[in-house]
C-alpha cells in the first residue's frame, strides 16, 4: 500500500488524504517537503530553531486544513505559501518584540557576528561555512519582499510562475523584485563577488 502511495504525485497524495483521510499519504508529503521548506524558511528567517518550529506549524496547518487545498493549484505552491506566511508573521512578531523590548541585553537580539571577508585571507574565504554564513548575513540585510523571491528563485530553484502563485504577485513584479534583490546582494557581497 505504502509503495503505491510513494509512486503518487503530490497532488494525488493530498487528494488521497482529503478523500480517505489516509495518514500515510500525509506522512509521505511531510517527508517530501520537510527539507525544502526547512531550507527556504531558514534562509528567510535566519534561525534554525525558529525555522524548524515554523515548518512544524506549516505541517500541522496542512494536517488541520487539508480541505482548504483546491486541486487546481500545485501542492508545492500551496505548502510554500503557508510556510512563507508563517515565516513572515514570525518576522513581524520579532520586529515588534525588538521594538517593545526594554531588555536590550538579550543575546537573541544582537546581530549575528560574522567575520568581515575583507579581514579574511583568500584561503579562509574558501572555507564554505564562513562563506555561507556571510551570504546568509547578506540575505538577512536585504528587504523581506526581495529576500523571499530571491530565495525561492535562486536557492529553491522555483519557476517565476510558481513564485508568482506563492506570493500572489504578478509575474512582472516577481521578476523586478528578484532583480532588485540580486542587485542589493551584489553590493553586499562585492568582496566575494570576484572569482
Amino acid at each position: 500500500m505504502e509503495k503505491d502511495l510513494n509512486e503518487l504525485t503530490n497532488e494525488e497524495l493530498i487528494k488521497e488524504f482529503q478523500d480517505n483521510n489516509t495518514i500515510e499519504a500525509y506522512k509521505i508529503l511531510v517527508k517530501r517537503f520537510k527539507d525544502p521548506l526547512m531550507n527556504f524558511v531558514y534562509r528567510f528567517v535566519g534561525d534554525k530553531d525558529v525555522a524548524s518550529d515554523i515548518v512544524q506549524n506549516t505541517m500541522l496547518k496542512f494536517y488541520l486544513n487539508k480541505d482548504t487545498y483546491k486541486s487546481f493549484a500545485k501542492f508545492s505552491t500551496w505548502i510554500y505559501t503557508i510556510a512563507g506566511n508563517l515565516a513572515k508573521n514570525e518576522l513581524k512578531r520579532r520586529k515588534r518584540r525588538t521594538i517593545l523590548s526594554l531588555d536590550k541585553t538579550n543575546d537573541n537580539d544582537k546581530p549575528m557576528q560574522v567575520a568581515d571577508p575583507k579581514t579574511l585571507s583568500p584561503e579562509r574565504l574558501t572555507d564554505s561555512s564562513i562563506l555561507s554564513e556571510h551570504i546568509q548575513k547578506a540575505l538577512m540585510k536585504i528587504k523581506k519582499i526581495y529576500r523571499e523571491v530571491v530565495i525561492l528563485r535562486d536557492i529553491q530553484g522555483l519557476s517565476y510562475e510558481e513564485i508568482s502563485e506563492i506570493t500572489g504577485l504578478t509575474l512582472g513584479t516577481v521578476k523586478s523584485r528578484i532583480n532588485r534583490g540580486r542587485a542589493q546582494l551584489q553590493k553586499l557581497l562585492k568582496d566575494i563577488y570576484y572569482e
Binding site: 527539507d35 526547512m38 531558514y42 551570504i135 540580486r182
Partner: peptide
C-alpha cells in the same frame, strides 16, 4: 555570480526528530 553564490549555499535539513 550572485546566483552562483546563492546556489552554493548548503541545503538546510530538518532536524532528525522532526517527524
Amino acid at each position: 555570480h550572485v546566483i552562483k553564490l546563492l546556489k552554493s549555499l548548503p541545503q538546510e535539513t530538518a532536524p532528525q526528530d522532526f517527524e
